[in-house]
C-alpha cells in the first residue's frame, strides 16, 4: 500500500499586487490569484518525500470557491497525483478554526489512511499560521512547524530539519503527523506527464454533506472570530528634510544626533 500525503493549498490574492480603493479597502477586482507561496513549498516538500519513497501518492486539497480549481490544476501540473476541492456556500467566511474543522472532516471521511499532512507555514493574505496547528489538534496527531527540509522517511516515522531564527533542530516524528514548512516560492518545473494530467483530469468537488461537516461548525456561523474593522496603517511623523551641500555636513549632522542619543542614555 502506498504512502499517502495530503497537501493543503490555498488560493490567495497576489499580495505583491495590492491596490487600494478610495475607502482604504483592498481593491479585489482584477486582483490576480495565485497559489499561496508557502503551499508551493509544501508541494515541493511532498515531492521530496515521494522522491525518497517512490511508492507514494500526493493528494492536493483546497477549500474555496469553484475558482480554486485553477490552483488545484496547477498543483497537478506540479506533480501532485490527485486533487480535491472542498466547496460549499456553508464554508464561506470560515476563520482558521472553522477551516481546520472542514479540512479535518475531509481527512476523516476521505483520506483516513494518510501518513503525512504537509502544509505551508502560513497564507500570505492572512499571516496567521494558525490553520496547520489547529488541524493537527482536530486530528489528534503530532506536528512539527518551521520545517525547512526532510532528512529521511520510513513507513512509521520520518526525520525533519526545523529551522527558526533562534535554533535549528533535527526531529523524528511518528506517523501519522502534520508538517508545516517555511519553504516559500519553490520553483517547480512541470514535467510533461503532469502537465497533460492537469489539462485532462477533472477536479472532484466535495460539499459539506459529503464530508459529513456539521454546519454549525463551518463558515460564518462556525467562526468565533470576526473582523470588526479593517483599515490602512497610518504612519505619520513630522518629517524634516535636511538638505546638505556635501556628504561631510550630512555625516556631521547624523553624528550629532547619535551623540545626543547616547548622552540621553548616560543621564
Amino acid at each position: 500500500m502506498s504512502f499517502k500525503i495530503a497537501v493543503f493549498i490555498k488560493q490567495v490574492p497576489d499580495t505583491n499586487d495590492i491596490r487600494w480603493t478610495e475607502h482604504n479597502t483592498i481593491q479585489r477586482e482584477g486582483l490576480e490569484s495565485v497559489i499561496n507561496p508557502y503551499d508551493i513549498g509544501a508541494i515541493q516538500l511532498a515531492k521530496n518525500v515521494k522522491f525518497l519513497l517512490k511508492d507514494c501518492e500526493i493528494t492536493a486539497v483546497s477549500m474555496g470557491p469553484m475558482q480554486a480549481k485553477e490552483a488545484l490544476k496547477e498543483a497537478l501540473s506540479m506533480g501532485c497525483d490527485k486533487a480535491y476541492l472542498l466547496c460549499d456556500k456553508k464554508f464561506a467566511g470560515s476563520d482558521t478554526l472553522a477551516t481546520a474543522y472542514v479540512l479535518s472532516q475531509f481527512i476523516k471521511t476521505k483520506l483516513n489512511d494518510f501518513n503525512l499532512i504537509i502544509c505551508g507555514y502560513q497564507a500570505v493574505d492572512g499571516d496567521t499560521a494558525q490553520t496547520p496547528s489547529s488541524l493537527a489538534q482536530k486530528l489528534d496527531i503530532p506536528q512539527i512547524t518551521n520545517v525547512s527540509a526532510v532528512k529521511e522517511v520510513h513507513c512509521d516515522y520520518s526525520v525533519w530539519f526545523k529551522d527558526t531564527n533562534d535554533y535549528s533542530q533535527t526531529i523524528k516524528i511518528n506517523h501519522p503527523a502534520l508538517i508545516s514548512t517555511t519553504i516559500k516560492n519553490a520553483e517547480i518545473l512541470p514535467d510533461i506527464n503532469s502537465y497533460i494530467k492537469a489539462q485532462t483530469e477533472s477536479i472532484t468537488v466535495f460539499n459539506a454533506d459529503e464530508i459529513e461537516a456539521d454546519q454549525s461548525k463551518t463558515g460564518f456561523v462556525g467562526s468565533p472570530t470576526q473582523v470588526k474593522k479593517a483599515f490602512r496603517p497610518v504612519i505619520e511623523r513630522n518629517t524634516k528634510v535636511v538638505e546638505s551641500d556635501n556628504t561631510d555636513s550630512a555625516a556631521n549632522y547624523i553624528l550629532d544626533i547619535i551623540n545626543k542619543c547616547k548622552e540621553q542614555d548616560e543621564k
Binding site: 499580495t15 495590492i18 483592498i26 500570505v124 493574505d125 492572512g126 499571516d127 468565533p224 472570530t225 470576526q226 473582523v227 470588526k228 474593522k229 479593517a230 483599515f231 490602512r232 496603517p233
Partner: peptide
C-alpha cells in the same frame, strides 16, 4: 493585527 503582509490592519473580535 497587521494582515496582507502588513499592508492592512484589522481589528478582530471573538464570540467565544
Amino acid at each position: 493585527r497587521p494582515t496582507y503582509g502588513g499592508k492592512m490592519m484589522a481589528t478582530i473580535i471573538s464570540k467565544t
